[in-house]
Simulated assay, not measured.
Amino acid sequence: MSTPAAQAAGSCYQSGGQAGYGTTYTCNIWRTNHQWAMWGPGTITPVGNVDGVLNAGNSWFICQRTFGITLTYGVNGSPDLVNNWFGYTLGDNGYWGWVSATHFSAGGNMQAVPGLGYCPAGFGDTQTYPGERPRPVNWQIPGPDREKKIQIS
Rank of each mutant, 00 (worst) to 15 (best):
L71D: 13
L54C: 11
I152G: 05
T102H: 04
G74Y: 13
A8G: 07
A6I: 07
G22T: 13
T126I: 07
T26I: 06
E147D: 14
P4E: 04
T102F: 02
G22F: 10
A6N: 12
Y13H: 11
F86E: 06
A112F: 02
V50M: 15
L81E: 12
W36C: 09
G10M: 01
C27M: 03
Q14T: 10
G117T: 02
Y73A: 06
R135F: 15
I150G: 01
T128C: 09
R146N: 15
N109T: 01
A112M: 06
D51K: 13
P144Y: 15
T24K: 04
I69K: 01
T102N: 14
L81F: 13
E147Q: 10
D51P: 00
D125H: 08
A106L: 04
P46D: 07
N109R: 00
Y95E: 11
A5E: 15
E147F: 14
V47D: 11
D125C: 00
Q18I: 08
N28I: 06
H34A: 02
P4F: 02
G74C: 14
P144E: 14
C12A: 07
G117L: 09
L90H: 01
G57Q: 04
G91T: 02
W30P: 00
Q35A: 15
G94W: 02
G115W: 10
G68D: 08
G74K: 13
Q7D: 12
V99Q: 04
G52N: 04
G143N: 05
S15W: 10
I62N: 04
G20Q: 09
M1Y: 13
G108Y: 06
G20R: 09
Q127W: 12
G107A: 03
P114S: 02
R65C: 03
P79T: 02
I62Q: 09
A112H: 05
T3W: 13
V137A: 15
F86P: 04
S2H: 10
N58Q: 14
T45A: 13
G117N: 04
L81C: 06
D80T: 03
C27W: 00
R31C: 01
A5P: 01
G117F: 07
G10K: 00
T102I: 06
N55W: 09
D125Q: 00
W96N: 08
I29F: 14
S100T: 07
Q140F: 05
S59L: 09
G115T: 04
G131P: 02
L71C: 10
